[in-house]
């Protein structure tokens, strides 16, 4: 239970948290779980990069502020901030308000969930094992914008499933990195 709460407090990026728990829960190794979680978290670096011009004040920002800002850099806070002009007070407010609100609610939700799950016998009876992939597809859904992203998703899922009998638990998911590398090359070639 404390492990789950620690993830929400410390990691605070939903897809990575779900991936870490999902892979550990289905017998995958700790290393594979961490690598997958971090690959999913890599997009936050790019969010941070684009948020610099939106949220940061012209003055040199304090270290504490930047460190807090980093922890709140997630899908939602980025999406809210970049709707406003760069460097505007609205963009700053949108970022901090969204980030803090989600941080508090996310952690409250985690606490309730962790307490509830601790009282359960078999999570399968309540269909909680079906809730895991449902959570992933709900995170995936808004990213499926066109035919090429849908194709990428279908191929990634198919390759990973095909590798299940061959590789150790947890590893098949990482095949998605190779699929993404190939897809990136194809997209680059089509653009050129």
């Amino acid at each position: 239970m404390w492990q789950t709460q620690f993830l929400s407090l410390g990691m605070f990026t939903g897809a990575s948290q779900f991936a870490l728990v999902g892979i550990l829960g289905t017998g995958g190794g700790a290393l594979v779980a961490v690598v997958t979680a971090l690959l999913l978290g890599a997009r936050n670096s790019l969010y941070a990069l684009s948020l610099r011009s939106f949220v940061t004040t012209p003055r040199r920002p304090s270290i504490v502020r930047t460190m807090g800002q980093a922890q709140l850099t997630i899908d939602e806070s980025t999406a809210m901030a970049i709707r406003y002009p760069q460097g505007s007070p609205q963009a700053r407010h949108a970022f901090w308000a969204t980030g803090i609100a989600i941080y508090v609610l996310w952690n409250l939700g985690t606490l309730i969930g962790a307490l509830g799950a601790a009282a359960l016998d078999d999570p399968r009876t309540l269909g909680l094992d079906a809730a895991v992939p449902a959570g992933f597809i709900a995170l995936l859904w808004p990213r499926l914008r066109d035919r090429s992203t849908i194709a990428l998703a279908v191929v990634s899922a198919a390759v990973a499933i095909a590798l299940v009998p061959v590789l150790r638990p947890g590893l098949p998911v990482l095949s998605a990195v190779l699929v993404a590398l190939v897809a990136e090359r194809l997209m680059a070639r089509r653009r050129a």
């Binding site: 690959l39 999913l40 992939p133 995936l140 998703a153 899922a157 998605a176 993404a180």
Partner: peptide
């Protein structure tokens, strides 16, 4: 595109 591929594989 990496999150799309990874999330789909996880699903």
């Amino acid at each position: 595109i990496l999150p799309i591929a990874l999330l789909a594989a996880l699903v």
